[in-house]
Amino acid sequence: MVFENILSEQKGRIQYITINRESKLNALNKATLAELHVAITTGFNDEGIGGIIITGAGPKAFVAGADIAEFAALDIAGGRDMALDAQTKVFDIIENGNKPVIAAVNGFALGGGLELAMACHIRIASDNAKLGLPEVTLGLIPGYGGTQRLTRLVGRGKTLEMIMTADMISAADGYQYGLINHVVSPAELLPKAEELLNKILLRAPLAIASAIKAVNAATLPGTQGFETEIDEFSKCFGTSDLKEGVNAFLEKRKADFKGK
């Protein structure tokens, strides 16, 4: 597929996805979300890709929100379809993916942009990044999982404050609240994301996938997280990677995992 709104390239075992609508501050319109769905699912299904880094084109914005122009003609049913489509085809797929996804947040991450970053497993932000969920200034609330994921990350009180005031916070505040994993200079943003992902890629891929599933189960309604952990733990014993990891430990050498 030829992409018009994003860039997708592979370097080594890392897939780099860049939201490429710089003139629109990389706003997420319907077409961009559709392209993200294709790029992300392709990466998750490609054995040659171990993980994904998502960022925005240019220095100003990661993603400055949804494309508001698309909201004008929507009614209740249209709004529901928009939220459901985006959540199930992009945001939930990222969160529940079998490979690590890191958001490299450069500049504004507002509305749908912050929701995209929160769906990723790890968030690294440049020190000039601004984060927020300003939907109530439009008469809306976050619709791409923002109310749920932000609550899990920073707690109910801070989530309600951020959403109800619509205020932006700095990357430093985001780090303090637990929303951001690392804050670096703009020049260090992608190198830091690459460094972290490359470290993860040295670990057992099937174990990483199991860890994602088990950790996600900790906050899913109706899910027994401890049972999920036990199930995923036990599945690891059926992998060649576990045998390799144990042998490497006993033989005092680095493990060479194959994802099998």
Rank of each mutant, 00 (worst) to 15 (best):
A209Y: 05
A77N: 13
C236R: 11
A207I: 04
A129S: 15
I163Q: 11
E188I: 06
T239A: 07
D92W: 06
A69D: 14
T88Q: 14
N20S: 12
A172F: 12
G178T: 10
G48Q: 07
P221M: 05
S234V: 06
N128D: 15
E70H: 08
I93M: 11
E22C: 01
Y177N: 10
L179A: 14
N5G: 09
K235N: 14
V38G: 03
K252T: 06
G139W: 05
A171F: 05
F249A: 10
A39P: 14
K30C: 03
A248H: 00
N96Q: 12
I40K: 01
H37D: 11
G238R: 09
I163A: 09
A109M: 12
K252W: 02
A73F: 04
V63Y: 00
M168G: 08
K235G: 09
P191C: 00
L206P: 01
M1V: 06
L36F: 11
A193T: 01
F3H: 14
I208K: 08
A187M: 02
I53E: 00
Q15T: 08
I76D: 13
K60M: 09
G65Q: 04
A248Y: 01
F62N: 02
T41R: 12
T239E: 12
A77M: 05
D256P: 00
I94A: 06
I49G: 00
D231I: 05
I141G: 07
